[in-house]
Amino acid sequence: MKLGAFVMVPGGDDFTGIREAQPHGLAAFENPRAPYSSRMPILGNDVLQSWMERVRKLGVPSLWLASGAGVAAATSALAEFARQGIERLLVIELKSYAEMDLADLVRFHCERRNPVTEAHDAGGQLGVRLLDRPALRATGEKHESCSSPTKSAQTPYQFSGYAKRILSARERQELVGDGLTGACAMRPLGTQIREQVWIGEGVKVATSARVIGPTYIGARTIVRAGATIGPFASVERDCVVDCGTTVERSTVLPDTYLAPGLLIQNGLVDGGHLEHLGWGAVVDLEPAGLGGRIPRRGARREPFCATSDGCSGGDNALARNFSFSSSSAASQPWLQVQL
């Protein structure tokens, strides 16, 4: 049976987030109105890549990738895949990190003979589903959203392994803590310099700064004098933590500047926005000069994006590990990725 895979990187009004779209990730494919992106690294890792690895292990040679506005267009065009001979389509909406054995999901789906199988955990849908050809056709005929077929009474695949929803700041921070302590399979992307402390390439830490494990500091980040990072902190790539600022039990997303003397606790900072996990408040740091977005340097390229010849590329692991088909970028709202 011919199995296809489709990964959708969500974005738009239906997802709560803490910032407006930033020019990261899927440049040409990302919805400009998207909130913070599921492509934002977690301990330096790209969750999209982890899903693509799982799909590759299934023996699927390529997958389709859509993002932002392209997701809606692709969803309404799922019937097209049935016409192309796909008999079963694995659809992954990139909103969770789950250590899921997709082969087991396929087995379950076959045994139950459902047209649609949705993966759930204790918290509900994980954004992973399998659709057989009749269900694919139905989405096209009825112009329904991809999730509509699952509204019927199908037996969901109950996933009991490790899963976190990465669009939730709280669960994201839980994933950071679990990755730092080895409670999940995700490992920080960098060099372990001492127990439970990892740093990426080109990190600069002032001698008077303190780094308290478990902690991760992403590539090219600068930690200035008297700052304290950790415990349970993740400062992702290309950030600057200025003098005397403390980042504790928090995540700082890429390209973020934090002013001197701050106390960031239980928060997620993305450029000039801070989401406080305890108070559930989102605050703008920029008017007070407390934080902001660091302009991206020209030398760094987008992880992948459509180019004039339809190919994509970039300087990150995704581009190194996967190749992008030149077929469809111009005419269709998705890319094909060779696994």
Binding site: G267, L274, A281, V283, L285, A288
Partner: peptide, 13 residues
Amino acid sequence: GSSATRVLLEVTR
């Protein structure tokens, strides 16, 4: 008066 102000007062110590 609001959780946002409270957070800013905490962040600035």
